[in-house]
Amino acid sequence: MANILIIEDDKLLSDAYKLILKRHGHKVSTAYNGKQGLEKATEQAPKIILLDLLMPEMGGIEFLEKYNKQGKPAGVSIVILSNLGDEKKVQKAMTLGAYKYIVKAHAKPEELAMVVDHLVSKDLSRSI
């Protein structure tokens, strides 16, 4: 089980991801933009963050920049969930420390759960 934060402005999608991950036994909290995400990331200390890129108020790239600047704790993995076809933004997110990029329109519930489980086991083996 892991503590997961979903930062996604589309409530329908956020609800769906939450349901999928809860079914897989994870503890899930949600934020609807980067600004809220930063607050929740500080409060809840999640191990995995699912991050959208295009959001009102504060997008995913700005979130990553600020999160890194305020001192992202070691062992936190970030998965980008976006529909952007813009390679530059996706690459920028990867250089800012994102672990993987998933296209939302293609994402399968099992794939999402698998990526999260993989990150949890990776983190566990690191701590052992």
Binding site: A16, L19, R23, N83, L84, G85, K104, A105, A107
Partner: peptide, 26 residues
């Protein structure tokens, strides 16, 4: 085309996710 495609993906994401959840027995 790039913007239109991105916009098309937005509703498709919910259709995709919920359809797969339905199929997977959620």
């Amino acid at each position: 085309i790039s913007i239109a495609s991105h916009q098309l993906r937005t509703p498709l994401s919910a259709i995709n996710t919920y359809s797969r959840m339905l199929y997977d027995g959620y």
